[in-house]
Design a protein around this nucleic acid. Structure first.
Length: 683
DNA sequence: TAGAAGCAGATTTTT
DNA sequence: TCTGCTTCTA
């Protein structure tokens, strides 16, 4: 009898046919991870007979979940009576909250904030300390992802900065509660709180999803782990796939220990490694393997290429960033002339700033390109303006959106008036709308301004009549506010108008396809959209950051900017092993050809600096180590543990003069010492 | 109130 | 170099 499993190799088959109990699949780059997961899903449903709606498959990107859904459904031979739930963590949270947020005494007309909104809300708080917004933004995210409540944060804050952060966290949480807003982290945090709080619901949900799969498990954070733990209350059927070598989001709270400790947590967990790579040539894989072997903190696996030999990895060296960009453009032209499809070519960089030179050169050589990861469509100011109207109409307690629209287009409600009305509403613990309806502003505002406000809110009320017909509502917004007329004939304005038009089309399409959805559903889907989702297969080469490239693959890949300081990127708190994993991810995107380039000097942050080739070029053997004389055949790497006769044990922080000199940190004491006097400690 | 000018700061960003 | 934010001035 034939089975969906027949197309798998033995390790993949073992993984896909595993039914009950925890399973950790360590899947190297290009090892057929998606194939294994989708086949397992099809196998469970089709051949074991598990109802599709009892499965839950969680991914990190829409792209991944869409691809998996398509592939899994294709593998099903019987017509399933229900469909498997296959979505991102965040979308799962959103779905869940629509049904269960009432457990926390909140209404389900909540509005989902994107990262820009979050930043803007934080900006509005009065600061007692001058802290960078990113500190607050990430700090609050960290609290939530580590299940630290605002109260705990306040109690445990030590430094001045922490105290201020905790204070803002409190204010922020209160505002979100009052205005019924959610941020991204809430999509995971609130479901966790609900399930933790309501044990019978937790049992029910856990029994409903009795087969759970998680993709990219190396990128889960503590909160995601705790949520999974609750979802597995009634069973242990958790199958996770990940690659510790591809963990590149620790700065966002991804916790590699989730994967390293999986077997400790799930005592009977089975471990299966997928080490056969079906993507890259032997040459590319050797380069990547040689590099990643320098990481100490890994489970350890070596990918074997199933593709056979190909071209050597090409190391390119240029004088500066301009010349680099020009030459890469020329190389790409050559590839195109050989008949290679542009969408099979990608340029990857560690820093988005490096894409500037590229853009110039690519257009100079008339090479169509798509720069991924720049401003998202829905984050454009003109779109956010329209969205703010729509959001406010759905949720009149959303004073945050109100602040965006109240004087846009200009209607004479300036910043001093705004300050007064928002301030008073806050003091009275009411929304601005509520307070205005109760005549709460007559004592502090002039009759003229009150009249203007009255007109504004009357308009809002009239617009609310069209909430059931979103597309008509949008037209009415344009008509009543005359917002489109604020744009002139400049090129920029025309661009913005075109974007608004596109938005209108998207909204109309959405409701044609989902006629039963509410406007609010449409709005809350928007922040979950990424710019990767609408990257079509047009005839363009791709230029993108390595982070954005994770999970993608191309025949021909250029990795640029391989210079010490830029890649590995050095900054306070930088993590060399994670930088190395990034390089590993970059290299393993390539199927046939990998080009790696570095320059002698680069213009960055307003100045030109002289740069050394990346340490990764030596570690991956792309630059042959030229060994310093008189050493005992030791190759040192940044991060190595070493010993010195006088100073004792230390760790290498930097390497100078081609390896002759080492900068070593001996427990806080930093010394630059000749490599000859240093002995490497093996782990 | 609104545009102009001046100034700091610039890692990555699946959702 | 470029962007986005604050401050200045009409």
């Amino acid at each position: 009898m034939s089975s969906v499993l027949d197309s798998l190799n033995p390790a993949q088959k073992e993984a896909a046919s595993h039914i009950d109990g925890a399973l950790l699949i360590l899947a190297g780059a290009g090892s057929g991870k998606t194939k294994t997961l989708t086949t397992r899903l099809a196998y469970l449903i089709d051949e074991i007979g598990i109802p599709a709606h009892n499965t839950l498959t969680l991914t990190f990107t829409n792209k991944a979940s869409n691809e998996m859904r398509e592939r899994a459904l294709n593998l099903l031979t019987h017509h399933a009576s229900s469909s498997p739930l296959l979505c991102t963590f965040h979308r799962f949270g959103l779905l869940f909250l629509k049904f269960y947020i009432h457990v926390l005494d909140r209404q389900n007309n909540f509005v989902l904030l994107d990262s820009l909104d979050k930043k803007n809300i934080l900006k509005n708080f009065e600061m007692r300390l001058n802290l960078p917004l990113s500190y607050l933004r990430d700090g609050i995210s960290n609290y939530k992802n580590n299940l630290i409540t605002p109260q705990d944060a306040l109690i445990n804050a030590q430094s001045k900065e922490e105290k201020e952060l905790a204070r803002i966290y409190n204010l922020y949480t209160n505002q979100l509660n009052e205005q019924n807003l959610l941020d991204f982290d809430d999509l995971l945090l609130l479901p966790y709180q609900i399930l933790k709080h309501d044990q019978s619901l937790c049992q029910e949900i856990s029994k409903r999803y009795c087969y759970i799969m998680v993709d990219e498990y190396q990128d889960t954070n503590f909160l995601q782990f705790k949520l999974l733990e609750l979802l597995c209350t009634s069973h242990q059927n958790l199958c996770v796939v990940g690659d510790d070598d591809q963990s590149i989001y620790s700065w966002r709270g991804a916790d590699i220990s989730n994967i390293l400790n999986f077997q400790e947590y799930f005592q009977d967990a089975k471990l299966i490694k997928l080490e056969e790579n079906y993507r890259s040539s032997i040459e590319i894989l050797n380069t990547a393997n040689t590099l990643i072997a320098h990481n100490a903190n890994r489970i350890g696996k070596t990918l074997k290429s199933m593709q056979g030999h190909g071209d050597e990895v090409e190391l390119l060296h240029f004088l500066d960033g301009n010349i680099e960009a020009k030459n890469i453009a020329k190389k790409i032209l050559e590839l195109k002339n050989k008949g290679i499809k542009p969408q099979e070519i990608a340029i990857l960089f560690r820093l988005n700033a490096l894409s500037r030179n590229l853009e110039e050169s690519l257009s100079q050589y008339h090479i169509p390109y798509k720069l991924l990861g720049t401003i998202r469509f829905y984050e454009r100011a003109e779109i956010k303006d329209i969205l703010a109207y729509l959001r406010y109409l759905c949720n009149p307690s959303d004073d945050f959106s109100l602040s965006r629209i109240i004087n846009n287009p200009r209607r004479g409600i300036g910043s001093s008036t705004q300050e007064k009305i928002f301030e008073l509403a806050k003091m009275e613990n009411k929304s601005v709308y509520e307070l205005f309806m109760q005549d709460g502003y007559s004592s502090i505002l002039s009759a003229k301004i009150l009249d203007t406000l009255d007109k504004f809110f009357k308009m809002i009320d009239m617009l609310k009549d069209f909430l059931q017909t979103p597309y008509l509502l949008l037209e009415k917004i344009f008509e009543y506010t005359q917002i489109l007329q604020t744009y002139d004939k400049s090129e920029e304005s025309l661009d913005r108008l075109a974007n608004i038009e596109e938005f209108a089309a998207l909204l109309r399409d959405y409701f044609l396809q989902n006629p039963d959805d509410l406007l609010q559903d449409f709005l809350n889907n928007i922040p979950l959209h990424s710019n990767l989702d609408d990257a079509d297969d047009s005839n363009c080469i791709r230029a993108l950051s390595i982070h954005t490239a994770k999970g993608l693959e191309f025949d021909h890949v250029f990795v640029i900017g391989m210079e010490n300081g830029l890649f590995p990127l050095m900054y306070e708190g930088s993590n060399l092993e994670e930088e190395r994993r990034l390089a590993y991810v970059a290299f393993t995107r390539a199927r046939k050809n990998l080009y790696v380039s570095y320059v002698d000097s680069r213009f960055y942050k307003g100045k030109t600096s002289h740069l050394e080739p990346s340490i990764f070029l030596k570690e991956s053997n792309l630059i042959k180590q030229n060994k310093p004389s008189n050493t005992h055949d030791q190759a040192f790497n940044i991060g190595d543990r070493v010993v010195h006769k006088i100073f004792g044990n230390g760790r290498i922080e930097d390497i100078k003069n081609n390896g002759e000199m080492l900068v070593i940190n001996f427990g806080g004491l930093i010394k630059t010492i000749m490599a000859n006097f240093i002995q490497k400690l093996e782990d």
